[in-house]
Structure formats: structure tokens, C-alpha cells
């Protein structure tokens, strides 16, 4: 079944092409003089109608472009949902194993070991529960994916908000967090003892604050270069564009990006993104 709106759109363009060809051929055949014998009001009406049709065509073009963008976002969302479901399925399998261990410990009467084991699992459950409760499914899926698939690095999410009013579109959000987490994971892998990455999501004064910490540090002489396009500490593994992209997206959506780094304190990248009401009040 052909899309009627698109056919109408095509017809509008064809009408304009037809009228243009008609006027051009009439001019070439020197029959323009006869066209101008038509009452002026008819010519004015035709010109106004064609002008309106042009506007309609442009409006339809813009609507179709927006629809395409919405479809891309929906597709990205679907993909992230799929990843979240896969990660949760993997966790479910994990918990089946935990239950077996718990049963074994209970059956063998190892009460203290059982207590300690249950404490660890409930902490894990609580974390997962908080991540899954995030209203931004894409962010939840990204964190779950990193937790499930990253080897040799412990990812600790600390969730203090539900991201219900996130103003940044999902695909941009994935770009921001994905790049920052990848950088943190890369550095954490280099650390033998402190191979942790902590991601904390909270709210502060109309902004959502995303803090990504790892134990690595950036030398002070590189502080000015960190956001430059092409700069990387990853050698051949890095494109040098990640932080530059993050900086541009954050700026585009009225946010702020900063970092602190020290040998003892590790490196924290902090992203402030305005909540939706904040964006509205700024526009007003």
C-alpha cells in the first residue's frame, strides 16, 4: 500500500515542475503574450496558489525530516531495550547460581558464610534495582551492558535520581555516557588493584549530575589538551574525538562538563545536564 501523503507531496512537486515547464515552453514559443491576455486576477490567483503549494511542500519536507529523526531515536531506544533485556536475562541466570550456593550453604549449616553471601547478593540486587528503575531506559541499558560485559573492571553505579526529566535525547545521552565510561574503563584496566569505575547519577539545583570516577590520573600538563579533537592517551586504540564530542553535545544542550584529577584522588569527570523545566525556563 503506497503512502498517500508521500504521493501528495510528490504531486505538489510535479505540479510546480509542470507549471514551470509550461511557462518556459510558452515563453520559448512566444505565446506568453497570449497568456498575459488572461485577466490579471487569474494570474495573481495562480501565483498565490503556487506560492502556497511551495510553502506546503517545504512544510511537508520538514515534517518528513522530523519523522525520520524520531524513527532513528525510536530505533536506538529499541536497541537499548534489547540490550537491557539481555543483560537482565544474564543476571537472572546469575541469580539462579546464587540460589544454588545459598541452598548449599544453608544445607551444610554454614550460617556466617550464608549471612555474608546473602549480604553481598542483596547489595548487588539493590544496585541492579536502582539502575533498572531509571526512567531513561537507554542510560539504564548502557550501565547494565557495561556492568555485564566489561571484564576485569568493577563498575559501581550509585543512583540517586530517576532521570525522569532528562532533556537530552537518548542517542546523545548514550554518546556522552558511553564515551566517558569507555575512557574510565580503559584507565581502570591499567590499574591492578584499583580496577573500579564508579558512576554516580544525582540531581542538583535543576541539573542532573553524572560523575564518572576511576583511579587513574591525568598529568596536569595535559589538562588543557584533554578536550582537543585528535588528542588521545590511548595510542592507536583511541581516535581522540570522544571527549571533544562529549563537550560539544553537553554545550549544545546547555550543560557543563568539568573534571578533576589527582594521583591520590583519581579522575572524576562531571557532567551537568539541565532538567526539562530548566530548559523551558531558559527558553522563556
Amino acid at each position: 500500500m503506497i503512502n498517500k501523503r508521500q504521493i501528495l507531496f510528490l504531486n505538489l512537486i510535479q505540479l510546480q515542475v509542470f507549471l514551470s515547464c509550461y511557462l518556459a515552453i510558452s515563453y520559448l514559443n512566444h505565446s506568453m503574450a497570449h497568456i498575459f491576455e488572461i485577466p490579471a486576477i487569474i494570474v495573481v490567483i495562480i501565483v498565490v496558489l503556487v506560492g502556497l503549494l511551495c510553502l506546503l511542500t517545504v512544510k511537508e519536507l520538514l515534517r518528513l525530516a522530523k519523522k525520520e529523526k524520531d524513527a532513528e531515536i525510536a530505533l536506538a531506544r529499541l536497541e537499548e531495550n534489547r540490550i537491557l533485556i539481555d543483560a537482565l536475562k544474564a543476571k537472572q541466570h546469575d541469580f539462579a547460581n546464587h540460589l544454588q550456593v545459598l541452598y548449599g550453604l544453608f544445607y551444610s549449616g554454614e550460617k556466617s558464610a550464608l549471612k555474608s553471601y546473602m549480604k553481598d547478593i542483596s547489595k548487588d540486587l539493590n544496585t541492579l534495582d536502582k539502575v533498572a528503575s531509571l526512567k531513561s531506559v537507554e542510560v539504564a541499558a548502557l550501565i547494565c551492558k557495561k556492568m555485564a560485559l566489561t571484564e576485569n573492571v568493577v563498575i559501581e553505579p550509585v543512583i540517586k535520581t530517576d532521570l525522569g526529566n532528562l532533556s537530552v535525547p537518548p542517542d546523545k545521552m548514550i554518546s556522552i555516557l558511553g564515551n566517558l565510561m569507555d575512557n574510565a574503563i580503559y584507565e581502570a584496566k591499567k590499574q591492578k588493584d584499583e580496577n573500579k569505575v564508579r558512576i554516580e547519577i544525582s540531581e542538583n539545583d535543576g541539573y542532573y549530575v553524572f560523575e564518572i570516577w576511576n583511579h587513574g590520573h591525568i598529568p596536569p600538563e595535559l589538562f588543557d589538551k584533554v578536550f582537543e579533537p585528535g588528542f588521545t592517551t590511548k595510542g592507536k586504540d583511541g581516535s581522540g574525538m570522544g571527549l571533544n564530542i562529549v563537550k560539544n553535545i553537553v554545550k549544545q544542550y546547555g550543560g557543563r562538563l568539568e573534571f578533576v584529577s589527582g594521583e591520590d584522588t583519581g579522575t572524576t569527570f562531571r557532567v551537568y545536564l539541565p532538567q526539562k523545566e530548566e530548559m523551558l525556563s531558559k527558553t522563556n
Binding site: I7, N11, L15, I25, L28
Partner: peptide, 19 residues
């Protein structure tokens, strides 16, 4: 909509052909 499209297309091609 098909009738409009087909007639406009055909006549445009005829106009170009007349040139």
C-alpha cells in the same frame, strides 16, 4: 492522487518533448 500524478507527469514529459 495517482490520477493527478500520472496526468501531470505525462503532460510535463509532453511539454519537454515539444521543446
Amino acid at each position: 492522487d495517482i490520477a493527478v500524478g500520472a496526468s501531470l507527469t505525462g503532460m510535463t514529459l509532453i511539454l519537454l518533448g515539444s521543446w
